[in-house]
Nucleic acid binder design. Structure first.
Length: 170
DNA sequence: GCGACAG
DNA sequence: ATCTTGTCGC
Protein backbone atom coordinates (compact mmCIF):
# COMPACT_ATOMS: atom_id res chain seq x y z
CA UNK A 1 0.00 0.00 0.00
CA UNK A 2 1.32 3.47 -0.81
CA UNK A 3 1.86 6.06 1.88
CA UNK A 4 -0.60 8.93 1.54
CA UNK A 5 -0.70 11.64 4.22
CA UNK A 6 -3.99 11.38 6.09
CA UNK A 7 -4.53 7.74 5.07
CA UNK A 8 -1.71 6.07 7.01
CA UNK A 9 -4.10 3.70 8.79
CA UNK A 10 -5.09 2.01 5.54
CA UNK A 11 -1.44 1.15 5.01
CA UNK A 12 -0.39 0.26 8.58
CA UNK A 13 -3.41 -0.97 10.54
CA UNK A 14 -3.69 -4.41 8.85
CA UNK A 15 -0.07 -5.22 9.77
CA UNK A 16 -0.54 -4.02 13.37
CA UNK A 17 -3.72 -6.11 13.75
CA UNK A 18 -1.88 -9.14 12.39
CA UNK A 19 0.94 -8.65 14.90
CA UNK A 20 -1.57 -8.44 17.74
CA UNK A 21 -3.30 -11.63 16.58
CA UNK A 22 0.01 -13.46 16.36
CA UNK A 23 1.02 -12.19 19.80
CA UNK A 24 -2.22 -13.51 21.30
CA UNK A 25 -1.51 -16.92 19.78
CA UNK A 26 2.16 -17.22 20.67
CA UNK A 27 2.68 -15.05 23.78
CA UNK A 28 -0.77 -14.34 25.26
CA UNK A 29 0.83 -13.29 28.56
CA UNK A 30 2.36 -10.31 26.73
CA UNK A 31 -0.93 -9.09 25.25
CA UNK A 32 -0.97 -5.32 25.96
CA UNK A 33 -3.42 -3.45 28.17
CA UNK A 34 -2.70 -0.37 26.08
CA UNK A 35 -0.73 0.40 22.94
CA UNK A 36 1.38 3.25 21.57
CA UNK A 37 1.19 3.81 17.83
CA UNK A 38 3.69 5.63 15.59
CA UNK A 39 1.21 8.15 14.18
CA UNK A 40 -1.75 10.28 15.23
CA UNK A 41 -4.98 9.59 17.07
CA UNK A 42 -7.54 12.38 17.09
CA UNK A 43 -4.93 14.88 15.86
CA UNK A 44 -5.99 14.21 12.30
CA UNK A 45 -7.92 15.99 9.49
CA UNK A 46 -10.89 13.69 10.12
CA UNK A 47 -10.04 13.28 13.80
CA UNK A 48 -9.43 9.59 13.20
CA UNK A 49 -5.78 8.72 12.63
CA UNK A 50 -4.01 5.35 12.83
CA UNK A 51 -4.22 5.17 16.64
CA UNK A 52 -8.03 5.49 16.49
CA UNK A 53 -8.41 3.15 13.53
CA UNK A 54 -6.20 0.46 15.09
CA UNK A 55 -7.61 0.97 18.58
CA UNK A 56 -11.21 0.46 17.46
CA UNK A 57 -10.49 -2.61 15.31
CA UNK A 58 -8.33 -4.22 18.01
CA UNK A 59 -10.61 -2.96 20.77
CA UNK A 60 -7.73 -1.91 23.00
CA UNK A 61 -6.81 1.47 24.52
CA UNK A 62 -4.40 3.20 22.14
CA UNK A 63 -2.26 6.35 22.15
CA UNK A 64 -0.91 8.12 19.06
CA UNK A 65 2.60 9.56 19.07
CA UNK A 66 3.81 11.39 15.95
CA UNK A 67 7.29 12.80 15.39
CA UNK A 68 6.07 15.27 12.79
CA UNK A 69 3.03 17.49 12.70
CA UNK A 70 0.30 16.67 10.23
CA UNK A 71 -1.37 19.83 9.03
CA UNK A 72 -5.10 20.16 9.60
CA UNK A 73 -6.18 22.89 7.15
CA UNK A 74 -9.83 22.88 8.21
CA UNK A 75 -8.75 23.80 11.75
CA UNK A 76 -6.07 26.25 10.58
CA UNK A 77 -3.44 24.14 12.30
CA UNK A 78 -0.14 24.44 10.44
CA UNK A 79 3.29 23.00 11.01
CA UNK A 80 4.76 26.50 11.03
CA UNK A 81 2.45 27.87 13.72
CA UNK A 82 2.61 24.75 15.86
CA UNK A 83 6.42 24.59 15.88
CA UNK A 84 6.56 28.31 16.59
CA UNK A 85 4.22 28.11 19.58
CA UNK A 86 6.01 24.99 20.84
CA UNK A 87 9.41 26.70 20.77
CA UNK A 88 8.06 29.61 22.79
CA UNK A 89 6.06 27.76 25.41
CA UNK A 90 7.64 24.35 25.98
CA UNK A 91 10.51 24.52 28.43
CA UNK A 92 11.40 21.80 30.92
CA UNK A 93 11.11 18.06 30.31
CA UNK A 94 7.50 16.93 30.42
CA UNK A 95 6.13 20.34 29.47
CA UNK A 96 3.20 20.12 27.09
CA UNK A 97 0.76 22.32 25.28
CA UNK A 98 -2.79 21.47 24.20
CA UNK A 99 -3.48 21.61 20.47
CA UNK A 100 -6.95 23.03 19.86
CA UNK A 101 -8.74 23.34 16.54
CA UNK A 102 -9.03 27.04 15.66
CA UNK A 103 -12.43 26.57 14.05
CA UNK A 104 -14.22 24.01 16.25
CA UNK A 105 -12.18 24.79 19.39
CA UNK A 106 -12.00 21.05 19.98
CA UNK A 107 -9.08 19.63 21.95
CA UNK A 108 -7.33 17.39 19.42
CA UNK A 109 -3.96 16.58 20.96
CA UNK A 110 -0.83 17.95 22.58
CA UNK A 111 2.74 18.96 21.81
CA UNK A 112 5.02 17.28 24.36
CA UNK A 113 8.60 18.14 25.12
CA UNK A 114 9.94 14.75 26.21
CA UNK A 115 13.29 15.87 27.60
CA UNK A 116 15.22 19.05 28.24
CA UNK A 117 17.60 17.99 25.44
CA UNK A 118 14.97 17.56 22.73
CA UNK A 119 13.82 20.91 21.37
CA UNK A 120 11.39 19.35 18.89
CA UNK A 121 8.22 18.14 20.56
CA UNK A 122 6.36 14.93 19.81
CA UNK A 123 2.66 15.15 19.05
CA UNK A 124 0.46 13.06 21.32
CA UNK A 125 -3.22 12.37 20.84
CA UNK A 126 -5.67 9.80 22.18
CA UNK A 127 -6.57 6.96 19.84
CA UNK A 128 -9.17 4.86 21.64
CA UNK A 129 -10.50 4.37 25.19
CA UNK A 130 -7.99 6.82 26.72
CA UNK A 131 -8.08 10.53 27.58
CA UNK A 132 -5.63 13.15 26.35
CA UNK A 133 -4.42 13.74 29.91
CA UNK A 134 -3.64 10.04 30.38
CA UNK A 135 -2.08 9.84 26.91
CA UNK A 136 0.32 12.69 27.66
CA UNK A 137 1.12 11.39 31.15
CA UNK A 138 1.92 7.88 29.88
CA UNK A 139 3.91 9.14 26.90
CA UNK A 140 5.95 11.46 29.12
CA UNK A 141 6.55 8.70 31.66
CA UNK A 142 7.95 6.43 28.92
CA UNK A 143 10.38 9.01 27.54
CA UNK A 144 14.06 8.41 28.07
CA UNK A 145 14.75 10.27 24.82
CA UNK A 146 12.46 12.23 22.50
CA UNK A 147 10.35 9.29 21.39
CA UNK A 148 8.61 7.14 24.04
CA UNK A 149 10.49 3.85 24.51
CA UNK A 150 7.71 1.55 23.27
CA UNK A 151 7.63 3.37 19.91
CA UNK A 152 11.38 3.78 19.79
CA UNK A 153 12.04 0.11 20.49
CA UNK A 154 9.54 -1.04 17.84
CA UNK A 155 11.01 1.38 15.29
CA UNK A 156 14.53 0.19 16.09
CA UNK A 157 13.66 -3.52 15.91
CA UNK A 158 11.85 -3.13 12.59
CA UNK A 159 14.77 -1.28 11.01
CA UNK A 160 17.15 -3.92 12.27
CA UNK A 161 15.03 -6.62 10.58
CA UNK A 162 14.96 -4.66 7.33
CA UNK A 163 18.75 -4.38 7.43
CA UNK A 164 19.11 -8.12 7.94
CA UNK A 165 16.73 -8.97 5.11
CA UNK A 166 18.45 -6.48 2.82
CA UNK A 167 21.91 -7.86 3.59
CA UNK A 168 20.64 -11.44 3.13
CA UNK A 169 19.56 -10.76 -0.45
CA UNK A 170 22.87 -9.23 -1.53
C1' DG B 1 -2.05 25.47 -10.68
C1' DC B 2 0.61 25.77 -6.08
C1' DG B 3 1.72 24.34 -1.61
C1' DA B 4 1.25 20.93 2.36
C1' DC B 5 1.76 16.34 3.54
C1' DA B 6 1.60 11.16 10.37
C1' DG B 7 5.02 7.22 8.00
C1' DA C 1 10.21 8.07 5.08
C1' DT C 2 15.49 8.23 3.00
C1' DC C 3 19.98 10.27 2.10
C1' DT C 4 24.08 13.22 2.97
C1' DT C 5 27.05 16.51 5.45
C1' DG C 6 28.69 18.51 9.55
C1' DT C 7 29.03 19.16 14.77
C1' DC C 8 28.91 18.04 19.63
C1' DG C 9 29.62 15.14 23.58
C1' DC C 10 30.61 10.99 26.24
Amino acid sequence: MPYIAGYLAFREAPALLDLLTRLKETKPELYPQIAFVDGNGTLHPRRFGLACHFGVLADIPCIGVAKNFLEIPTESLTIKDTKQVSREHLHGAGAWLPIVGKMTHDLLGAALRASSESVNPVFVSPGHRVSLATSVALAAACCKYRVPEPVRAADSASRQLVREITARSQ
